[in-house]
């Protein structure tokens, strides 16, 4: 493991919703400047992990550090793209307005967004190819356009670490490619991007780092080393037949073996 301070360090994070535990003892280090996918089957706790890191769900135990400091002190370094379906797109507001919301945290109490925030928002909209839509009511956007607006809102946060919850969900192919380009550009700028992802086929093209999750952390590290049939079998359990047909890559000889205790894999 690198001696450099990781962009995100999660130690022993356990989360319970009400009486049901959903994440057990997660350890995760993400080096700065990586594009990382969080993957796992439905109900593995991917969204919960992001929400727990962001303090939106109270953890039962554990600790989150961003660039060497406690999360609550480093919050300004973090940007967030929630799931597109989590808001009401019929809300009476415009594209530009939504993007400016990314600056609300930095603005402080009682202050209104002004020309500076407006300019930042316009620049971000330009970056995602939505500048012409700035005055558009948000209900009149396609799924891909809505996702771009959410991305622009995260961009104006001007963060070091971005958390994105399924940004490719329900978007058109062109938007997906545009988003990937943008993510890679962020990486070039030294930013860290952590994405909840579903599509096993695109992992190798889009990401260089991966965490496999299923209630606990199954494996994590560079895609080349971790994205193996062996690990996928551990993460996805019974659906392994289907997954093997996707043939991610051959297991490297030193693939970590974390599944040697009973009760883990259910058919």
């Amino acid at each position: 493991m690198s001696t450099e301070t990781p962009a995100v360090r999660v130690t022993d994070l356990t989360v319970a919703y009400g009486e049901l535990p959903v994440l057990w003892d997660i350890d995760m280090d993400v080096p700065a400047g990586k594009l990382m996918a969080i993957m796992g089957p439905n109900g593995a706790g991917k969204t919960t992990l992001i929400k727990a890191i962001l303090g939106l769900v109270p953890p039962a135990a554990g600790r989150v550090e961003i660039h060497g400091g406690l999360y609550r002190d480093q919050r300004h370094l973090v940007g967030y793209v929630p799931q597109r379906g989590s808001v009401d797109w019929d809300f009476p507001t415009t594209v530009l307005d939504v993007v400016m919301m990314g600056r609300y945290g930095a603005l402080g109490w009682f202050k209104r967004p002004g020309k500076r925030e407006r300019d930042q928002a316009l620049t971000a909209l330009d970056k995602v190819g939505m500048a012409d839509f700035r005055a558009r009511q948000i209900s009149q956007l396609s799924g891909g356009q809505q996702q771009r607006v959410f991305l622009a809102r995260a961009l104006v946060q001007d963060a070091q670490v971005y958390f994105m919850d399924e940004p490719f969900q329900g978007v058109d192919a062109r938007t997906e490619l545009a988003i990937v380009d943008l993510l890679k550009e962020l990486r070039t700028l030294g930013r860290t991007v952590i994405v909840v992802h579903h599509d096993l086929q695109t992992v190798r093209d889009y990401f260089d780092w991966i965490t496999l999750l299923n209630v606990r952390r199954i494996a994590g590290g560079p895609v080349d080393e971790v994205f193996t049939s062996e690990n996928l079998k551990l993460a996805y359990g019974g659906r392994v037949e289907f997954l093997q047909r996707q043939a991610p890559c051959d297991p490297p000889p030193d693939a970590p073996d974390l599944g040697s205790y009973p009760g883990r894999i259910r058919p």
Binding site: L54, L56, V78, Y80, V98, M101, Y104, W109, R153, Q157
Partner: peptide, 19 residues
């Protein structure tokens, strides 16, 4: 508290992430 109320009504999770 206009902008706080607006953000809370539109996207409370994002408001929480902003601190």
């Amino acid at each position: 508290m206009w902008k706080e109320f607006k953000l809370l009504s539109f996207d409370p999770a994002f408001a929480g992430a902003l601190g």
